[in-house]
């Protein structure tokens, strides 16, 4: 066998290999995620900047909530292809970017807090976003505060799945999904019942992570 014989064979093989063509997904369907600000004057989009990853989350050690939040973090991290989101649970709340308390959402402390509420049959949740317009930009004051609380006595009712769904939903708010959807199959549905992230949740989360953010996290 010589080059005269092997070259055509190799070119034929290369041609066959090159037939395939990669096509990226369209990220459709998705839903509106941006926060409508002050009656429609503006819409705010947020994602964690790369230099803040991994996001530091402190979780009150009650009702096995750290495990539920960790499951939610794992789910959301799995939704991204390029490392756009990562989070770790930390033991010091003073330096945390997100603070999760196992308590009924208290009255809003200040007027600038924008609260997103969630209500399930067995438990409830809320995420507080403290947003202010400072000088030339919108700022999200950290930490983002999340609340998850039982509506029944957890000693007599197994609320594990309810906590799991609520933690996943509230984490969705913390990574920039600021609206509730109208589709009960989405984890970001107002009263979520989905056991996992929908294709719409994943598509939207990926869009959020690459959409130009006009809400900047500050401390």
């Amino acid at each position: 066998m010589t080059a005269r014989h092997t070259l055509p064979l190799a070119l034929l093989l290369a041609g066959a290999l090159s037939c395939a063509e990669a096509t990226s997904p369209s990220r459709v369907p998705n839903y509106e995620w941006r926060l409508v600000w002050e009656g429609g004057l503006d819409t705010l989009s947020f994602h964690w900047p790369e230099d803040m990853l991994p996001v530091k989350i402190w979780v009150e050690d009650s009702l096995d909530m750290p495990a539920r939040v960790q499951e939610g973090v794992d789910d959301w991290q799995g939704a991204f292809l390029y490392g756009e989101y990562a989070a770790v649970l930390v033991s010091d709340s003073s330096s945390a970017d997100v603070v999760v308390r196992v308590v009924t959402p208290p009255p809003k402390a200040i007027a600038t807090v924008n609260r997103l509420n969630t209500l399930l049959p067995g438990c409830e949740g809320a995420t507080d976003l403290d947003i202010e317009f400072i000088a030339t930009q919108y700022e999200l004051r950290l930490p983002v505060r999340m609340y998850v609380a039982p509506r029944y006595d957890p000693a007599t009712t197994d609320l594990t799945e309810c906590f799991r769904v609520t933690a996943r939903h509230e984490l969705g708010h913390s990574l920039g999904l600021f609206q509730h959807t109208s589709d009960s199959r989405d984890i970001m549905y107002g009263n979520p019942e989905a056991e996992g992230l929908s294709a719409r949740d994943i598509n939207t989360a990926q869009l959020v992570a690459h959409w130009p953010a006009n809400l900047i996290p500050t401390r």
């Binding site: 290999l17 395939a20 063509e21 990669a22 096509t23 997904p25 369209s26 292809l81």
Partner: peptide, 18 residues
């Protein structure tokens, strides 16, 4: 060669990257 991963395929990528 052609490149793809199971995660890319699950995410909706069709075909493989040359």
């Amino acid at each position: 060669h052609l490149f793809t991963t199971p995660t890319l395929e699950a995410a909706g990528f069709s075909g493989s990257q040359q």
